[in-house]
Nucleic acid binder design. Structure first.
Lengths: 336, 336
DNA sequence: ATGAAAGCGCTAACAA
DNA sequence: TTGTTAGCGCTTTCAT
């Protein structure tokens, strides 16, 4: 049974044409008469022939594979993005090679190297930063890189983010307007552009209102850290305790709410208002009903795919895009 | 700058050796003297050379790529499995080509075809069934397939599941022992082996106890369907209402709990006990605190990878594995 | 241990 | 439109 491999030569033999004729029939935009095409297709069908994508890639220099590097999948934002990215790329005839890289620089460069070995046509990094060195290697290899949901100051890199500074600002303004005066910010990881930008926006709005944050703590985008930090926030004396918390992303916000309700015995938003960032599907579930800044994943994904493909097909230069999302008001925060 | 491509020939020229010598240095288990190896490595380093994985794959017939087909990513079980699978395979030097296929048979076979085009060394299907025809094609191409979390009666296919029948049985027994006598089962999708097996186990235990289920409804593994079904369950007259629900997976169980609490105004487990299946991370969060049958993902992943690699490296035949998991008792169900 | 040569399966000039 | 020819970059005999 192990038919193993059917080659274009075998098809050619059966169809009584040259091997290159077979190739032409399977190459979009190549010329072949109706007659040959039919005979070739029939022979191919009979033999179960399909062109070898590797061999094709070797000669055309295009593999139609895209490398996707993602840190973790436990934050719901990423599976959602991954699913959307994968589908969008599939629709355009591309396939994705996924690598999980955590946040270690080492691992990331190892993984990038492997992607280059496989001659991917482009690389998407989801929320991971990449070194200058790596950027140079990709540039040298002529492989476009687009960073999804992370920014970096390098003209050779495309990036697609939401307007995180303005998002942070709006979150703070919303809380202030509701009358909160003891606001804390459990920040997104300060090693990331998103974490820093959101915190920056938050600071700007607080300054503008002449308010000082009760606390500014790095939650590292980790559920555990966010929970621990929340505990700490409420161990001090009463006046130091926040009555509102802006959290750097939804994933941490869920941990904050869990801690508030189940460990500290507080109510949300009765005792404490909570605002998150991302608007992952879980944020809309009634168990959390989280007020949050939406990142319009779908549009971000489309922009990412467009940017990447434009660069791959030649008529594109790296671009930096910001796609804005609204504040979604739900029940986890008091309303002004 | 666009260095584009560095070939082994260029390295050979610089190192003053033959092209095949370069190949040998980069081929594990090939012979080369220390001296040549050093010169080659130096030259490669200088030029930034790395072997082209495509060309290598073309000749060796091994690409070290594994195709992974997954239906959706919205059930937390899959991102978790995907992350684990990806990491495990990476560790063994394999890379994964991910495809999102929904549950349409058409899409699945389209996607399988593309995987075969890319000459993947093996295929893992996560919770998707595959047609006989497809199985034959893979068998003919000599490409091993292992089904993760789904079973199918075909000797050519490997499968790794948990013991779903016994899991369903234990869930029912647990509920019965707690004194419940009006138990409903919102079943997993009856088009899937897991959905059917869990329901089968549930029935067995109910029969053995001489009990009739209040209801047996297909929740389609969908959050929306599960929510709707739950509403229906409580619109009838009082005696028909369940006091316990065994739900076919956690993903639906969350929807059931949300509906119970926020739409129906019932308490869990006060008014209704809920038991799920999978033990995804979210089940342990205090907002749900879900009693559930654990699927030991890590062990299932390891078994999957082992089975696949054994078959790829030759010394393996398709195997059917069942890996059992415990009932995890939390707060969503009354205790007997 | 090493080089020369063949060829993996395909596409892309080039003639005809 | 078609066949012939030359590679894509690599591994692997086969001699040496």
């Amino acid at each position: 049974m192990a038919n193993e491999k059917v080659t274009s030569a075998q098809v050619a033999a059966l169809a009584g044409v040259s091997q290159s004729a077979v190739s032409r029939v399977f190459t979009p935009g190549a010329s072949a008469s109706r007659k040959t095409a039919e005979r070739v297709r029939a022979a191919a069908e009979a033999l179960g022939y399909r062109p070898n994508a590797l061999a094709r890639g070797l000669i055309t220099g295009r593999t139609r594979m895209i490398g996707l590097i993602v840190a973790y999948l436990d934050n719901q934002f990423y599976p959602v993005a991954l699913e959307l990215l994968s589908r969008a790329l599939q629709e355009k005839g591309y396939h994705i090679l996924v690598f999980m890289a955590g946040n270690s620089t080492e691992k990331i460069s190892e993984v990038m190297g492997e992607l280059l070995d496989y001659q991917v046509d482009g690389i998407i990094t989801a929320s991971v930063a990449i070194s200058n060195d790596l950027t140079s290697r990709c540039a040298a290899a002529g492989i476009p890189v687009v960073m999804f949901n992370r920014g970096q100051d390098d003209v050779r890199l495309s990036e697609v983010t939401s307007d995180n500074v303005s998002g942070g600002r709006r979150a703070a303004e919303f809380l202030l307007q509701a009358g909160h005066r003891r606001i804390a910010h459990v920040m997104g990881w300060q090693g990331s552009s998103t974490g820093r930008d959101r915190a920056e926006g938050f600071r700007q709005a607080m300054d503008a209102a002449g308010q000082k944050p009760v606390a500014l703590i790095d939650g590292m985008y980790s559920r555990e850290t966010a929970a621990a930090v929340t505990q700490d926030l409420f161990t001090g004396s009463d006046p130091a305790r926040p009555d509102a918390i802006f959290v750097g992303n939804d994933h941490m916000a869920f941990a904050v709410m869990d801690t508030l309700r189940f460990d500290l015995g507080l109510t949300v938003p009765g005792d404490v208002s909570v605002v998150g960032y991302d608007d992952v599907p879980l944020a809309a579930w009634p168990a959390y009903d989280l007020t949050t800044i939406r990142q319009p994943v779908r549009r971000m994904v489309d922009a990412t795919v467009d940017a990447l493909i434009a660069q791959i097909e030649g008529d594109g230069v790296p671009r930096k895009l910001q796609i804005d999302g609204p504040l979604i008001i739900r029940g986890s925060a008091r309303i002004g």
